[in-house]
Design a protein around this nucleic acid. Sequence first.
DNA 1: CATTATAGTGTACGAACGTTTACTATGTCA
DNA 2: TGACATAGTAAACGTTCGTACACTATAATG
Lengths: 197, 197
Amino acid sequence: MQLLMLKGDIKDRIEKIRKFYLRNKRMPSYSEAASLFGFRSKNAAYKLIGKLKDLGLVSSDEKGKLLPGDLNNPVKLLGSISAGFPSPAEEELQDTMSLDEYLINNPTSTYLLKVEGDSMIDAGIHPGDLVLVDKSVVPKTGDIVIAQVDDEWTLKYFEKKGRAVYLRPANKKYPLIKPKQELIIGGVVIANVRKYK
Amino acid sequence: MQLLMLKGDIKDRIEKIRKFYLRNKRMPSYSEAASLFGFRSKNAAYKLIGKLKDLGLVSSDEKGKLLPGDLNNPVKLLGSISAGFPSPAEEELQDTMSLDEYLINNPTSTYLLKVEGDSMIDAGIHPGDLVLVDKSVVPKTGDIVIAQVDDEWTLKYFEKKGRAVYLRPANKKYPLIKPKQELIIGGVVIANVRKYK
DNA sequence: CATTATAGTGTACGAACGTTTACTATGTCA
DNA sequence: TGACATAGTAAACGTTCGTACACTATAATG
C-alpha cells in the first residue's frame, strides 16, 4: 500500500522533471529541481535524484549534470499489434524512443518534402505525405528516389540494369521513364511519414 | 570574399555546437564552447555567441544558458516536390522542425506500434510500418483505430451509423466487421511512419 | 520500548557559471 | 598616416553549480 504510494510519488516527481525539460528544453539543476518538488533544501532534491539514478530512471554526465534520458523520449514503444496490446494500467518498464533519432541517420543531409501527385501511391506514398530525403545516400535498384524529369521533381523507383537507369512510378497509370540524357537525382527516400490528426 | 569566409566560419561554429548538443544532449557552457572553438578565453566564445544571438541563430534563457533552437531540430523543411527542389548550395534561411513535435500532440497517451498484416494496405499502411496511436482521442467515423476483434488487436477504419459501429478494413480481401457485443478500442491512429533505410 | 530507516533541512566548499571590463593584436578604410 | 572596427586574451565579479556532512523529525520494526 505504501509502496504504491511511493511509486506514485516517484512518477509525480519524474513527470515534473519531464515538464521542466519540455518547458525549458534543458534538465533542471538540483536547486531548480528542489523548487520543482517543493523542497526548501536542494540537497533533498540531490538525494531524491540520487535514488532515481539508482533506479535507472535518470542519469547524469561526468559533470554531474542531469541528462534527458528515456524520460523525455516522446514515444512509448509497444510491441506489434497482433502480439497483444498492453493495457493502459501497466505503464512501467516501457521502452521509449525518439522518432527523429530513429528515422534520421544524417541530419545535415536529410530533408523533408511534401508529396504531391499520386505516382507512388502503390508504394503506399500518398499525396500529402512527408518524405524524408537523404541527399548523401547513393541510390540502388529498388530505392525510391526524388529525380528531376522534364524540369519537374518527382518520386520514382530507381532501377539500374547494366549501364541503363530507369525510373519506375508506383502507379500503373504512369509509364516507365527512360531518361534520354541527364538524370538528376535529388536524394533517396529513407522514410515516409503521414499525419492524420 | 571575406564575407563568405565569415559565413563559412559561422556555419562551422554552429555545427560544432550542434555536435556538442548531439553528443552531450545539452548545450555547452561558454567555457565549453570556448574549447569547442579552440579559444583560450571563454569570453571569446561569449562574444561570438552574442553575435550568433544577434543573428538569431542561437538563443538563451533568462539564466543566460544557451537553448537548443532550430539549430538542433533534426530536419530541414523543403517545399513540396513539384514546387522545385532547392539546390544543395542554398542552405541558408531554411525552416526546420522536429518530427516528434510535429506528429505527437499528447506524449503521455501516444504509443508506437508495429503493423502486422495487410488489412489496411489500401490506406497506405503496410506491414512493418509503425503507427502512432493516441489513446486519449475519441474515434470518429473515418478515423483509423486499433481495436480488439476476437481477442486480437487490428487496425480498422472506424464507422459509426446512428448507434451502430462498424470496423472496415482497407483491403477488399477482408470483410466488414459488425461487432456483436463488446468493442474495445485501443486508440486512434494519428500518424503512420515507414522507414526504408 | 529502543533502534533503525526514511525524508527533508541547513550549511559549507571548491569549481564552474554568465557577465563585465580592460587590453592586445590585426586588419580596414578614409 | 591615423582612426576605427574586429577577434581574441586575460582577469575579476558575484552567483550558482554539484557534492558532502551534520542534523532533525517522523515513521517502521524488532
